[in-house]
């Protein structure tokens, strides 16, 4: 995994000019700030991860990058073309995979690909060849002429990715492409994305699954409420957790489900505390040596504990330690989402 990231980084630096430049992107919907000063660059052959919980502003960022939403300020350049001033030129260089299943279920996979290929202006001869290649890449060759309505969720997701690859784009924007699918299809999509990056494509990959970012990306930005809270190569971001570990304490169901109790715990303990279903997760910034004191404090509060587990730091730990909440929680209010 680390080797893959290093190769990407080296490939990106060797490639020279970045394929994607995002500069000071800002976007509000009424009083709600969806994206707040986001900047990053992505080089050819690199997979850049945008990690954040639901409602963090990932989809809005991608919509702006795709030229679908105008930012209040800032700009995005794709292959040197501004998506604001030269929208169509920039769009010609990119492929987009929206979060929703943007496919026509009444048509077959081949018909879907053919339709969007026509709209991209791909010539007939090349179109045929490209569709075959994409079907092969996403593993749908055998069912290309079956109606999409008859596909499984994973197959539909793979087609969704495939359509984004039409026109051999230099830049690929993927918005949570693996939501709600089986592990096999997920793996297939992740491997395809890797292969595409290896062929020189610059990829922006948004997700709230930190393990996907760790598997795919060389660099990432962790965003929350539209703001970048951590940014850089994956190891550097992981290092932000320092000596921190996560103390995971399962408790009997229903004991800590009252907001007031959680709040009192959060006020009592001088570190980020998160209550998920059936589990209390506490970030220990100074490592495992803080655990005995914390457990003692909990027992003083009468929290019935049912075992404990210490977890080494990962991206989720970083997010938890920086925001005090888990990546997979958060409000599902993705304004201006692409789908």
């Amino acid at each position: 995994m680390a080797t893959h990231a290093a190769v990407q980084e080296a490939r990106g630096q060797a490639a020279g000019d970045p394929s994607i430049v995002v500069e000071g992107l800002r976007k509000s919907f009424g009083k709600n700030v969806a994206v707040d000063g986001l900047s990053f660059t992505v080089h050819p052959g690199e997979i850049f991860g945008l990690l954040g919980p639901n409602g963090a502003g990932k989809s809005t960022t991608l919509s702006i990058m795709a030229g679908l939403i105008r930012p209040d300020s800032g700009d995005v350049k794709i292959g040197g073309h501004s998506v604001i001033r030269e929208t169509q030129r920039a769009q010609r260089l990119m492929g987009v995979v929206p979060q929703g299943l943007a496919v026509y279920e009444e048509l077959t996979a081949a018909q879907n690909l053919d339709y969007f290929a026509k709209l991209r202006g791909i010539e007939k001869k090349r179109r045929r060849q490209e569709i075959e290649e994409i079907l092969e890449l996403v593993g749908l060759s055998g069912v290309a002429h079956r109606k999409v309505a008859q596909y499984s969720g994973g197959m539909k997701r793979r087609l969704n990715v495939g359509i984004g690859l039409l026109g051999r784009p230099r830049v690929l924007l993927l918005d949570e492409p693996t939501v709600g699918i089986d592990p096999q299809s997920r793996r297939h999509i992740l491997d395809s994305v890797r292969r595409l990056a290896e062929s020189g494509m610059a990829v922006v990959y948004t997700t709230h699954y930190m393990e996907e970012v760790e598997y795919l990306c060389s660099r990432l930005a962790i965003i929350d409420r539209g703001r970048v809270i951590a940014h850089g190569p994956i190891d550097e971001v992981r290092a932000l957790a320092g000596d921190a570990v996560v103390l995971r304490l399962p408790f009997p169901r229903g004991v800590l489900d009252e907001a007031a109790k959680v709040e009192s715990l959060q006020n009592t303990l001088p570190m980020p505390v998160e209550v998920t279903s059936g589990e209390l997760r506490i970030v220990l910034p100074q490592g495992s040596r803080q655990a005995p004191a914390v457990i003692e404090e909990l027992q003083r509060h009468g929290v019935p504990l049912d075992g404990m587990r210490l977890e080494s730091p990962n991206l989720e730990t970083v997010f938890l330690s920086l925001t005090g909440k888990a990546l997979r929680d958060g409000k599902a209010a993705e304004e201006g989402a692409m789908a």
Partner: peptide
């Protein structure tokens, strides 16, 4: 628009 195919068509460069 709800399906996302409208956005996809726009990104394909169709005004």
């Amino acid at each position: 628009r709800r399906r996302g195919t409208l956005q996809r068509t726009l990104v394909a460069g169709v005004p």
